[in-house]
Amino acid sequence: MTQQHPIGTGFTAASTADDILRGIDLSGRHVVVTGGHSGIGLETTRALSKAGAAVVVGARTPDRAAVALAGIERVEVVQLDLADPASIDAFSGRYLESGRPATGSPTSAGTTRTSPPATTRCSPTASPRPPMCCSPSSWTACGPTRASAGTPYTPASS
Rank of each mutant, 00 (worst) to 15 (best):
I7C: 11
I40Q: 04
E43T: 06
T125S: 14
D89R: 12
V56M: 05
V55G: 04
T120Y: 12
S127V: 13
T145S: 11
S105L: 11
S92H: 13
R74V: 10
P128D: 09
G23S: 01
A14Y: 14
A14S: 09
T154V: 14
T103N: 15
H5D: 12
S98Y: 08
D63E: 03
P6F: 14
T119G: 12
A70E: 02
T111H: 11
G41V: 01
R74S: 02
P155V: 11
R113P: 10
T125Q: 13
D19M: 08
R60G: 00
V78I: 14
V55N: 04
L80R: 01
S38R: 05
T107G: 14
A86V: 12
A17I: 10
L21H: 04
S127W: 12
A149Y: 09
A141C: 14
S138T: 10
G110R: 05
S49V: 03
C142R: 09
P85C: 06
A51V: 00
T44P: 00
S137Q: 10
I20R: 06
P136D: 07
V55I: 07
E73G: 07
A149S: 05
G99I: 11
P6M: 09
T34S: 00
T107M: 12
A53Y: 01
E76V: 11
V77A: 03
A126N: 06
E73S: 09
V32E: 10
F11A: 08
A83K: 05
A14N: 06
E97L: 14
P128M: 07
P128Y: 07
G36P: 01
Q79F: 13
A51Y: 03
R29Q: 05
G52K: 00
G41N: 01
S158M: 15
G8S: 06
T34P: 01
L69C: 03
D89Y: 13
V78K: 10
T114A: 13
A47H: 02
T61M: 02
S98G: 03
C122S: 10
I7M: 03
T151H: 15
L42A: 02
Q79A: 08
I40P: 08
K50H: 04
P124W: 13
C122N: 14
